[in-house]
Amino acid sequence: MNPVIQAKGLQKSYGGHCVVDGLDLSIYKGECFGLLGPNGAGKTTTLRMLLGLIAPDAGTATLLDLPVPQAAREARIKVGVVPQMDNLDPDFTVAENLLVYGRYFGMQDSDIEARIPDLLDFASLTSKRDAKVPTLSGGMKRRLTLARALVNDPDVVFLDEPTTGLDPQARHLIWQRLRELTQQGKTLLLTTHFMDEAERLCHRLAVMDNGKLISEGSPRELIERNIEPQVVEVFGETSGQWADMHAANFAQRYEVSGESVFCYVPEAQPLVMHLQAQSTLRYLHRPANLEDVFLKLTGREMRE
């Protein structure tokens, strides 16, 4: 089966700075694929190249078996996009946003009108059909943007940080809807820097930094491959001293970040027993997660 989205050796520089550096990617039908990375890692530039909105300096890409950017217009007939920042039409109602957007795909008004009730239902916006966009909450706007991306019944949906800025309720509703889309056989490509989002939604993930893919696989694979299975976080004013004296005895790898010490261990029992005897320290024992992998791969220092 051909990949729905494929990139080979994609490269893009802006002003001498390499933003995407030799990227290879294959995404298959029905997958939810997550592109993770800190700000400035090249995620959005990658999406824009895969959509054919900008031309790569080197490398090739195909979208739904069509070469992009050469045949991007034809490919995008079956693609939906949820952009990072809302760009709904503020002068229009919810339903008008869907109608006007459907026309850009060459759809007849009657065909769009026929789809609007289902789209509104999917976005839980049926009661807001005639509400103007500025009166909607952030979560409603995101859901409308998602509904708008589905107006042409796309095979592939690109989502650039779909839940950034939303409260937990709104995020959970979006996640539920995205799962429904993959169940319908649609292919999703999303960028995010929320590890819980990636872990819950994505079948496969790629971690990106400085324009390169540095690790790729299912969430479970990424954790197994990159990091010890157990994490013990140690907190307290004396955690630094404790780390200098004891951490290396229990953990082959540990990181100090402020007043926290992160110990990565295959077996946490000896460390936990030791910590129970330290009255000035608090600790948290948990399984390793994707965030640990992400921080290990991309570092703890701030970006931008």
């Binding site: 034809e74 995008r76 920042m85 760009n87 039409d89 503020p90 957007y101 850009y104 795909f105």
Partner: peptide
């Protein structure tokens, strides 16, 4: 400001 063009350019419009 409204990014209307960006929204339109994501469709099959050049």
């Amino acid at each position: 400001e409204q990014r209307t063009w960006e929204a339109i350019l994501n469709t099959p419009v050049a």
